[in-house]
């Protein structure tokens, strides 16, 4: 494995269906936005490292929520 530095990054995760905003706390404090036109919920927020990202994705898997896409936003693109 490479000596990769796991600096906390920001991620955008799109899932199918509407997930109410109150679920944000459950997903490690990410912000939740529902897009009516696509019928997808967009989660944005900080993810500590790769392990945390995998944990987050496993949570969608365990809830049976289909994942549409995962993007790294870079650390400065969104003000906290």
């Amino acid at each position: 494995m490479s000596e990769e530095k796991h600096q906390p990054g920001r991620y955008e995760i799109r899932v199918r269906g509407r997930l109410p905003g109150r679920w944000g706390a459950w997903f490690a404090g990410m912000s939740l936005t529902y897009e009516t036109h696509s019928g997808e919920t967009v989660l944005r927020g900080p993810v500590a490292d790769q392990a945390a990202l995998h944990g987050l994705l496993a949570r969608f898997r365990d809830l049976g929520i289909p994942i549409v896409s995962v993007f790294e936003l870079g650390s400065d693109s969104d003000p906290p």
Binding site: G17, R18, L19, W23, T41, L63
Partner: peptide, 15 residues
Amino acid sequence: AVIDSFGGDDRYIFD
């Protein structure tokens, strides 16, 4: 009527 109301809500169904 209840079943119809399900269809009108697009929330994550389990929630």
